[in-house]
Amino acid sequence: MFEARLAQSAILKKVLEAVKDLLTEATFECSDSGIQVQAMDNAHVSLVSLNLRSDGFDKYRCDRNLSMGMNIGTMTKILRCASSEDTVTLRAVDSPDNIIFIFESQNKEKLAEYEMKLINMDLEHLGIPETMYSCVVKMPSQEFARICRDLSQFGEAITIACSKEGIKFSAAGDYGNANVKLAQTADSDKEEEAVLIDMQEPVKLTFACRYLNSFVKATPLCAQVKLSMSSDVPLVCEYQIGEIGHIRYYLAPKIDD
């Protein structure tokens, strides 16, 4: 028996919105410690790594480890049927063909059940080596989303250059070029508005706008985003999910031919 309950479906709704552009299907691995998803996009350029800890749920029970293949499009449609304040419960038997989503309104007067067929998927896991990153930047997630959106108008790629002075995003295309520089905030009262740079050595990397613009769909999950970069390794773009876990996106850089 697997059962996981969240007091408000809003978190799960936001998680689905944050992955649906990149993934069509994904395996949800459920164990005593929580729910994990690791999946690459079809082009093998980016990877989504989602971790929801069991202690972050209002109720969590997982008698046997389960790997449930889910269609992300269908799951997104089902989650859109829930109000943000509804309680959501995921339920499956030990060797499931289906998973049930149960939405209960706050006043308990409305109870909705949606059953979704699971799909058989080959489980492909990637070994991600422990990496000490040259630059780790924490910045407001809305600012990052804004910069990705703005610079996407100028080219297909954004170059991120990070040094002690700050972080610079730039894009160039047929119509011109653009760059946005953010300095490290000196003494931000509000943690959420801070730009913090932890730099061992400067880095300069180029990434496809298309993927960055998919990652920033996670913006509603967290006020801050963490970008970890080293020369010639994938970018890690991380959003905390309240007290329950995190979503990390890995993105292979564009390299000079």
Partner: peptide, 14 residues
Amino acid sequence: TPIQNDLLEYFSLI
């Protein structure tokens, strides 16, 4: 123009 690298260049399947 820079070309898009594959994630599998960095991470291995396990």
